[in-house]
Amino acid sequence: MSLNALLFDLDGTLVDSDALHIQAFRAVAAEHGVSFDADFFARHMSGHTNAQICLSLFPDLSAAEHERIADEKEALFRRLLEGASLAIPGVVPLVEWALDRGMSVGVVSNAPPANVRAVVQSLGLAGKFAVEICGGSVPRGKPDPMPYRVALERLGVPGERAVAFEDTPLGIRAAVGAGIATVGLTTTQPEENLLAAGALLAVKTYEDQRLTAFLAERLSMAS
């Protein structure tokens, strides 16, 4: 077994963006007289699809209203993202390291396509990802394994030859369910939650030497 692909979640994994998402969601929620705290965000919003989040925040509104609110929130998030420097330390060098070794890299996220494009552009990585699985591009989002399975299929890489990076238990369960060795980022959740969800390793940044050793071991394993 060797290493052929690295797959990244978006928010909390490529970029430390939760503060901007919270700011944007609070702004649109306030227009409807709704507020939430950090605990609610962690339990009902982080890692969830916009449809799930809007159902939690606005249970009495229609699906059409949920979609409109989500679109408004994401547009505000992208405006807030402009000029921000949110890269998780070491992520850009890691992507370049993988590409230099002939690996494929991809994004697998519940975020809408416009957000994925904006974040990737902000990192200077436009055109680097061989596959981008976004919210709505597959019938079922995380925590279902489908987004990761579709990414693997499009890359032509079996799960055992990939490594995924996630920052939430929901995302980790999706990647592990697709048969992918997964590393947790402690951007939004404590290490114990990530390991309990199935992560093999939990790190704060991509500069952690334990991650370097983990990837070197995966890369050197005989096929």
Rank of each mutant, 00 (worst) to 15 (best):
E67H: 02
D71M: 10
I53H: 00
E65I: 02
V34D: 00
S46Q: 11
V34H: 06
S56W: 12
A24L: 09
H66W: 05
I69Q: 03
A70I: 10
L55D: 13
H32Y: 11
F41A: 04
S35L: 11
V28P: 00
V34E: 00
E74R: 07
Q52N: 03
T49Q: 08
I53S: 01
A27I: 09
V34C: 12
D71S: 11
C54W: 07
F36K: 12
L20M: 05
S56G: 03
F41K: 03
A75R: 14
D60N: 15
F40S: 05
M45E: 03
H32K: 14
A63M: 11
V34K: 07
F58H: 04
P59N: 05
H66D: 02
N50E: 06
F40L: 12
L57P: 00
A29M: 12
L55M: 13
P59Q: 03
H32A: 15
A70V: 08
V28C: 01
S46H: 11
A38R: 14
F25M: 10
A75K: 10
Q23E: 15
R68A: 15
F40Q: 12
G33L: 11
E72K: 09
R68D: 13
L57T: 01
A38W: 13
E31N: 13
A63I: 13
A24I: 09
R68Q: 15
A42G: 04
A24D: 04
A42N: 06
A42D: 06
H32D: 07
D39R: 14
L57N: 04
H44R: 15
F25I: 08
A27G: 00
Q23C: 01
V28M: 03
D37H: 03
H48Y: 12
L57D: 00
H66L: 10
D71V: 15
T49G: 00
A38E: 15
R43P: 14
K73R: 13
E65M: 14
A30H: 02
E31L: 13
L61N: 01
H32E: 13
N50G: 12
E72S: 12
E74Q: 05
I53K: 01
A29S: 03
S62Q: 01
I53F: 02
R43N: 07
E65D: 12
V34A: 15
C54A: 09
A75I: 15
L57C: 01
E65W: 07
A75P: 06
S56E: 14
A30V: 00
H66S: 04
Q52R: 13
A51F: 04
M45H: 03
T49L: 06
A64P: 01
A27R: 12
Q52P: 07
G33F: 06
F25N: 11
E67M: 09
I53G: 00
